[in-house]
Nucleic acid binder design. Structure first.
Lengths: 159, 159
DNA sequence: GCTTTCTTACTCGGATACCTACTGTCCGAGTGGAATAGG
DNA sequence: CCTATTCCACTCGGACAGTAGGTATCCGAGTAAGAAAGC
């Protein structure tokens, strides 16, 4: 099982937007320079966040991305779902109904597969934990000097 | 994010072994027939379970797989970890240290990345939920007639 | 000085290539049980 | 009837091909800000 790199990128970009405040939008190129990432591909991921309503984008000169709502109202689940998509990690293909179960009465399969149910409970726990943490919570865990370092870097870049 | 199909296959095979009892080992071919799966590939996954100490295998005629310990002592986490590998789903690549953070004092990065820590908490919740459920628990959730159906199928195959 | 036009820089969105990892197949080696031959 | 040999079915383990999805790049279209030209 693997989460795409885009999740890490998206979270760090949102975090950067959060502590830069809402003064001016940040273009993809700045994020790409900050983290040494491929700009075009990063842009694809940020667009996914826009489609999910987490970011807003402004075209044209001095355009870029902003948070669509305050960091307290953006959960990690929002970001992960926006980038990874809505599909569950475990996908039941109903192998119980194939082969040996093919000629069994359909009544046996009305209740959902117990294996899928158990895996689903675990995944639900994961989603709940993600939904319980907001961008603001993560911000609070970052030491002040690191935040200042980023702020200074952005101030230097915009001059 | 996606879990490989092997997880579903492995769980169903273990479950089948659990309620067939420990009378005689089940070869890969029978599992493959039961679920209509490619035998050689399924065998690869079962070997992974053997390496992890969940199953034991007997070579030679009338050989096959058995559970290495009773179902109460096999958690879903054991099976998932054996097949999916030990790597975490979210992998922190420390992008905070690249670009803008490259010339920052190393002291800023002694504490682990807050984003990785938050994602790690969610993943821990997932693992805990998996570890809290044993094969015996999942067995208990399967209706009796479905179990009988499988038992009959195996009885018919071994004759 | 004010308005209009033009230029520039940026985002958006799609099309495309690449590459990793998952899926699937094949084959030779080794092993244990059963059948067979010999005593 | 007992023992030893042979044979067969099965697992083991690795090598290798195919495929789906994630990664990465490029380019044209549309848009907003600023510069330049005209009134």
């Amino acid at each position: 099982m693997r989460l795409g790199e885009g999740v890490e990128w998206g979270l760090h970009c949102c975090l950067t937007l959060a502590w830069l405040g809402d003064e001016e939008p940040v273009p993809t190129a700045k994020f790409a320079a900050q983290f040494e990432l491929p700009a075009a591909y990063l842009n694809k991921r940020l667009q996914a966040l826009v489609r999910a309503g987490i970011l807003t984008s402004n075209p044209g000169a001095r355009g870029g991305f902003r948070l669509a709502r305050p960091p307290e109202k953006i959960t990690l689940m929002d970001v992960v779902a926006a980038i990874e998509g809505p599909d569950p990690a475990f996908r039941c293909t109903e192998i119980r109904q194939r082969g040996a179960g093919a000629d069994a009465p359909a009544r046996l399969f009305q209740r959902s597969c117990s294996v899928a149910a158990a895996m689903g409970r675990a995944e639900l726990a994961w989603r709940r934990e993600l939904a319980a943490q907001t961008l603001a919570d993560v911000m609070a865990a970052v030491p002040r000097p690191a935040v200042e370092q980023t702020r200074r870097w952005y101030a230097r870049m915009s001059s």
